[in-house]
Design a protein around this nucleic acid. Structure first.
Length: 413
DNA sequence: TCTGGGGTCCTAGGACCC
DNA sequence: TCTGGGGTCCTAGGACCC
């Protein structure tokens, strides 16, 4: 087929790659004896975050509590997550796709987009459908994990394609053949349409992606917002979303939120939880080598109402003692008595890379920076979270709390 | 769904200004 | 000012994703 043919079929050629049951698949490559078994990767608070098709067949679903899974199928292999391992596989996935085109968007740990339009691909890669097939083959043979691959003229259609035949599907949607795929796609399954918009569409008797794109443009603009119009274009084969190369390298915020048990009205207990989140968010910021100068905090009530407050930080920082000191008064002002809370969280934003040179050479900030880098080393050596702010004490179990004093930190647990 | 955690982006409407 | 109109900026919070 000539290049002219292929650009008629694919004015833009966008591939979407999606790892099947990715975390569980990674676990199986680490331990091949698990192949063919119902494998479940557990996450926070003991719920399933990934599962093999064997586990799905037994009725296990994402989000199911581990104790329920054990009851439902005692033969299930339940593993804790190994996120370092998944990250390694993700990087290999990106690298394999990157052989065919430099335009690879590292969308998430188990997904990526690639622009394989002619003129973008490396010289000997072939036509789009051939490239999509090769990418899938390389991924599966080199990583030992199955992937679902979609090829279409836009990102949203490529997503439709990769979802269409899971697991291990290869679906190509050349221009002009969209209709049958859209007819088989529920409007709520479209990437970018969530529960709220899906319900609004159902009220208008729009239930499939095909019905959505059949509506006139005016109907979309009058009843919905800009992102939905973008989806309408994309689903009609008009590309408006670019493949963002290396877009993930400038992170805009870093967060730590935690639900705790039991829920409580106690001011001090809730502060201890928030304080623990402050420590956690700072630990992660230091790990990434970034600082922030603005903190968004929230308390979540039992009724899922959010009490929010924000705190400008006097400078860019990633040290918990500094942030806790500024957040504390704001917390005291925002706190409402008599409300039962179940979670707290903090998001650090206005992100900037950590300065190698501390700005304040004579004040405490330099010492704090050094102190926390030392703490990070201790945590690394002893398996993390060995040293805490005294204010977080209540948020950790009572068993390992023997406070001692450190300069600048006050009581440390 | 008796409801986790980490992110990003968009927008309605208030604040503010002339 | 018991008042009009119009524009821009900002932010709280909604919606969505994995």
């Amino acid at each position: 087929m000539s290049t002219a043919d292929s650009s008629a079929k694919y004015p833009r050629a966008i591939v979407h790659v999606d790892g099947d049951a990715f975390f569980a698949s990674c676990e199986i490559t680490k331990n091949p004896k698990l192949r063919g078994k119902p494998v479940v990767v557990g996450g926070m608070r003991g719920i399933a975050v990934a599962l093999t098709y064997e586990a799905k067949a037994l009725g296990v679903v994402r989000g199911m509590p581990v104790h329920e899974i054990r009851k439902l199928c005692p033969q299930a292999v339940i593993l804790p997550g190994d996120y370092d391992l998944y990250g390694i596989y993700a990087r290999r996935m990106y690298a394999i796709v990157g052989r065919y085109t430099p335009l690879v968007e590292e969308y998430s740990i188990d997904e990526c987009f690639a622009d394989v339009s002619s003129g973008q691909v490396t010289a000997d890669s072939g036509q789009p459908e051939e490239i999509a097939r090769k990418i899938k083959y390389d991924l599966e043979t080199e990583l030992g994990i199955s992937f679902s691959v979609g090829l279409a003229t836009t990102k949203v259609l490529a997503k439709v394609a990769s979802k269409h035949r899971k697991p291990s599907g290869l679906v190509c949607i050349p221009t002009g053949t969209e209709e049958e795929y859209l007819t088989n796609t529920g409007v709520g399954k479209i990437w970018g349409i969530g529960r709220a918009t899906a319900e609004a569409l159902y009220r208008e008797k729009v239930t499939t992606a095909q019905e959505f794109v059949s509506k006139p443009e005016r109907w979309i603009t009058e009843n919905f917002a800009k992102p939905h119009l973008m989806l309408w274009y994309e689903l009609r084969g008009i590309s408006v979303y670019d493949v963002h190369v290396g877009g993930g390298d400038i992170q805009k915020s870093v967060a730590a939120t935690r639900t705790f048990r039991p829920p409580t009205k106690e001011r001090a207990v809730i502060w201890a939880q928030l304080s623990k989140n402050i420590e956690e968010v700072c630990r992660r910021a230091r790990e990434k080598g970034i600082t922030g100068s603005y903190a968004y905090c929230f308390l979540k009530s039992q009724e899922f109402q959010y009490l929010r407050f924000e705190v400008p930080l006097t400078r860019h920082t990633n040290t918990p003692i500094e942030i806790a000191e500024l957040v504390r008064p704001a917390y005291e002002r925002a706190f409402r008595r008599g409300v039962e809370y179940r979670a707290t969280g903090i998001t650090l934003s206005n992100i900037r890379p950590e300065e190698i040179e501390q700005q304040d050479l004579f004040g405490t900030s330099r010492n704090l920076g050094e102190l926390f880098s030392t703490i990070d080393k201790i945590d690394h050596k002893y398996g993390g979270n060995t040293i805490h702010l005294g204010s977080s004490m209540g948020a950790y179990g009572a068993h390992h709390t023997r406070p001692f004093a450190l300069p600048f930190l006050g009581d440390v647990v």
